[in-house]
Design a protein around this nucleic acid. Sequence first.
DNA 1: TGTTAGCAGTCAATTCTACCGAGTGCCAAC
DNA 2: GTTGGCACTCGGTAGAATTGACTGCTAACA
Lengths: 349, 349
Amino acid sequence: MARRAAKTSPSPSDLDARKATILEAVVAEHIDTAQPVGSSSVAHSADVDVSPATVRSEMVALEREGYLAQPHTSAGRVPTDKGYRYFVDHLKSGVLSSAQQYQVRDFFTNVRGEVEDVLEKTSTLLSELTSYTSVVVSAGHSHASILSVQLVSLDARHQLLVTVFSDGSVVKHSVNTTFDANFVDVSEASRQLNALLIGTTLEHRVQVPSRSDGVATLIRESVSVLHAEQPTTDGEQVFIGGSSKVAEVFAGVETVRKVLSILEQELLVVTLVQDILNQGLSVAIGSEHGYEPLSACAVIVAPVTIDGAPAGAVGLLGPTRMKYREALAAAGMVSQHLARHFGGEDDLA
Amino acid sequence: MARRAAKTSPSPSDLDARKATILEAVVAEHIDTAQPVGSSSVAHSADVDVSPATVRSEMVALEREGYLAQPHTSAGRVPTDKGYRYFVDHLKSGVLSSAQQYQVRDFFTNVRGEVEDVLEKTSTLLSELTSYTSVVVSAGHSHASILSVQLVSLDARHQLLVTVFSDGSVVKHSVNTTFDANFVDVSEASRQLNALLIGTTLEHRVQVPSRSDGVATLIRESVSVLHAEQPTTDGEQVFIGGSSKVAEVFAGVETVRKVLSILEQELLVVTLVQDILNQGLSVAIGSEHGYEPLSACAVIVAPVTIDGAPAGAVGLLGPTRMKYREALAAAGMVSQHLARHFGGEDDLA
DNA sequence: TGTTAGCAGTCAATTCTACCGAGTGCCAAC
DNA sequence: GTTGGCACTCGGTAGAATTGACTGCTAACA
């Protein structure tokens, strides 16, 4: 009875043990060889202990249920996105080879430089570890408070507003005036801006003087230019490593072009990563992320959390037939090291 | 007699008029069609007024002299790098279509934002104008003087040194100490650093206090970390636009990969551009720039000069059979607009 | 009833052959 | 010196034949 029920309306995400084994064997082999895989190679694979004929009939079922597809009648089977999804969901987590583990540890003990440099190099590391294109996103400073603002005069009508945030980021904005600002006014404005803004975040609105003298105008301009940043981007930074891997890893020229043109648009990449994280996923396969040009891709994302707060994410972009276990392990390990590196005690020297 | 001499030892860079015309016709057509070009299409082209047979015999000569090559016996001719070089050297300068001119002007009248944003967008513009990958390099600040330095405390042992240069660039450096620095020391160090460094360039060496108290240590650390920047990079920034064009424009996957992996290394790109400029070239064809992985490429460079001083460069990277006239015109026009934009009166608002 | 061996059928990929045509080099005539 | 003509070369293409890796189906089997 239970069996019957299971057969007529099979829970879509729960295959019986044999189907699961076969599906996993198909996916694993296809990831390995990039070829459609036939019944006999599955039958001969380690975990499967039935004849090719049996495998075939199971494959028909798996195809009917949408896990596999056949490029053409007399070819083997290829996993669908749904097939990959099942595979990934039932993946036991792996670890990196000890050589790779060493490489990561070595990297993080030796790396020096400013945050941006470290993230840039990290993205290169991650890409080299996996031979996929990597993405490192640092969180914006919408929640960081302002440690210091300073107005520096370039010339009478052009000032530079330099803002330092508690997360260590530094942002500059041009502040231009239609009148000549004298040195005294600029430093007075700078002083008042400090008093006004230190300790606030970009989300705080502050009371600006409404007077029309030079100092007040400078202050108003500065605050408005600083707060104007908000809508477009949040100060996230994106570092892309190994974009040349795109050409190695994807087949058609057209796919390569599409993927590259997505990677060119940093804002899009940030949004993509954020979207995936918001969906609570760590892997988005094929069209799961909703970016049509990336429908041939799988994207792996691992959040970087420092002291419980989201501080960014690392990601990997490869073909749907990517080596999920290794890639997940690499992304996970790097994100942890990154968190530790920028987290507590570490001396960034 | 003179004729005889010209025949036995022809000046390699000076072809007789007919050869020149034929060579130019071959190059022009090959750029257009990407196919080997045969004698008859050359003979029928506008500027040539001889029979295919005559063209053939001239082509034999041009091949012997290294301007043309034959992929195989029964194919037409293809220009060699030397052929392209001749073509480029004898190119009369062109102008952009008026629609493109409008696009450039429109861009520069409407563009807003920080210098970096403008350069980033400019590289996209240039790439869209030409459908080649573009490069925008801004000069380093080795000759810019320091307008302001400020030490901001992140926590007791981590300070941030924020330096503003006269060219409007802002640089941050971490300054870490092995002792807890108190707030007063940090602001005192900041004050003294200002007195010490304002008006100097990174090439100036300054006298630092040798005392061992906190303030002096902070100052020493700050100065050393600031001056340490020099050797690796000079603060140049690179903006690459349209890297996806690489996939459109080059044939083999392997070429695409090679080119992309060069573009990944920003330092390399800066050096490449600088090298070409130093050679006094505006176009480097094939192996002229000495970067083997780019031997299938031509690189166009146009310096950006502001008030007589080099302020950077714009470049284009395409296949050796790129549309030189249009690309040169675009690079030239953009570099001029860039110079004007950041030059005198313009309000960057 | 589920599993298996065997068999006929399908279809992409490969190989082969023949052929076409673009383009050359050479030569003899102008 | 230029040209038309001719024989030749050789890459590219199109079609036919072959191969072989699969499948689905069926009948026998445990």
